[in-house]
Structure formats: structure tokens, C-alpha cells
Amino acid sequence: MSLPAMRVVRPRTVEDAVRVLAAHGPEAMILAGGTDVVPNLQMRLFAPRVLLDIKGIGSLRGVVRQPDETIRVGALTTLTQLLATESLRLRYPVISSAVRSIAGPLQRNMGTLGGNLCLETRCRWYNQSDFWRKSLGGCLKKEGTICHVAPGGDRCWAVWSGDCAPALLTLDAEIEIAGPNGNRRLALSSFYRNDGINRIALGGDELLAAVVLPPRTAGWRGVYHKLRIRNSIDYPLAGVAVVMNVDEQGVCRDARVALGAVNPAPVLVKQAADWLIGKKYSPELVERLVHAAIQTGKPLTTSASSPVYRREMLRVFTRRALEEMWGMRPRTPNGND
């Protein structure tokens, strides 16, 4: 399918990129790996006048340990490069677990960390061809006025479908955003708006430059569990990331639980740290957390899979992951279940 006519601009520096964004406003669109943006362009979900290819900006690449012991991962780091980076694999196992479950190896060779964190939200009523959508009269997110998922409402429920975000939320990651006035730092948890249309807190003249990982969560155990139709290529239908710092006595020193692919944003299960810190494994405690997880996740009919099944799998994954963290069951080698 051919793409709509547009200009393609290839800046070499962040400053130039930001200038182009500022000049063209919503008519400009950022392109990195292209695995999400290009199929969406083919489906005419976006109609930018200018495509801003940032792949030539060297300062957005590389994984560097900074003087304050944080690790800065450039937004253009491909998902394959993330997996190959020893320091990340050893210190933040939840990242590798999540990244291994993204699409397949060819897509991971192209797809970038920044792209995965800025993914377009997905819905069965939205990710369709131009003809299909127009036949239906569009939806709230595009070309229409009705949400077919929740027809009475005025909110878009298109789902957050990235796997990196829940994993990075559990690590208290921050992001670096470049804009016309330089860089700003933001907690990743403040980046997501839980709105299927206006999904991320990124200004029209800004771009995501890097992810910053704190030393505090380094070395914590972690795992990501993911539901999808096939164990390759497909987007998630539900995802659960869990990290835990466990001492030799099996006491939880700190923990986080985050969900993806069930809400318009990736979300932390707020109770996790409060309820788990200072506790040893017990089936009752796990079930309490499992209950909190399914209260947090709100799957709706945004995909071909039923909300009931996806909700049930949140329960299974949260239980399984917590048991793994406490050493009650063998670690899952990768995010596929």
C-alpha cells in the first residue's frame, strides 16, 4: 500500500528536530523504527505533511552509565540492542523479559525503545483500513463521534499496547524530553494520560530523548508476562510486570506491579509496595495483590479477545509472577506464556 504524499525531513541534531516540530506543529510526525508509524500511515490513521525521521540523530543513541549511577538509555536504542546490552540484562531483568516478548526479532531490529514508549494506542474499531472505518462512520478516536467500545461515553478506550512501559514503570524510570527550551525530566508514570486519544504528555514541539534508570531498583528480581494470540509478532492483549527486592530470609524489601494492554495507559498497581514490603510469601497475600491487580486493569472489547479472558489472565499472570519473585516457582525464561 502506498503512503500518502508528504515531505521527509532528516535532521542530524535534536535542536534541528525540535525546530522542525515547532514550525509544523501537529502536521509533523516523528518517525524512528517505523514498525508502528508506517503501518498506521498505510491505513491512513495519520495524515502528516512532514515526516521527521530522527534515526540520523546520534545523541539519541547509546546506553551510558552516568556519574550519579543512573543508566541513560537513548530513545533510538533498538529493542534488539536493549536485549544485547549486558548491563541492562543483569541489572534490570524485567526489561529483557518484556522486550523479548515484543513482536518478533525482525520487528525488534527496527523498533526502538522511544517508539515503544510512544506507541499509538490500539483498538479493533480504530486499527482498520480506511474503507472499513469509513463504512462504519468512524469512531471517537478518528473520523466519528461514537465510541463503539462504550457507546454512551465521551472517552476513548483504545488500549496502551506497548510492553516496555509497564516494565519501566516498575523500575521507577524517568524520561528525558527534549523541547525548544532544552531538556526536561519526567517520571515515566506522569507521561501516560489514560486517554486513548491524547495518550502521552508530549508537546507538539517535543521529542522523547532517553530513558533514565535509577540505581535504587537495579538488581531487583523481575519478570513480565504477556498474553497474545501467537507467541510472536502480535501486540499484547494483557501484560503484567512485577519486580521485587527479596532478602535472604525471603522477606520482600520493596516491590512494584504494573499492567499493560488493559487500559488506555500502562498503570502501576498502587497497593503493591505498601502491602508487600516486610512480608514473606503467603498464598493469602498473593491473592490480595491479585485482587488489587484485577481492580486496576479494566479490559474492554477493544480486541478480538474477550475482556473476561483478559481479566482472568491478569489474575493468572500476577499470581505466577509474584510466586516467581519469591522463588516459589521457576522463573519464566521469557515473557511468552
Partner: peptide, 21 residues
Amino acid sequence: SSCGACAVLADGVPILACVAI
């Protein structure tokens, strides 16, 4: 970008030519 039939090597790394501009 979901079948792999268009794969080519880009600096030795296999990528999907159907979504590469």
C-alpha cells in the same frame, strides 16, 4: 510488518522493507 517476506539486510541486520522508507 507482520510476515517477514520482505526482509532485507540493512548493514547486516535483517529488517522489514515494507515499513522502511
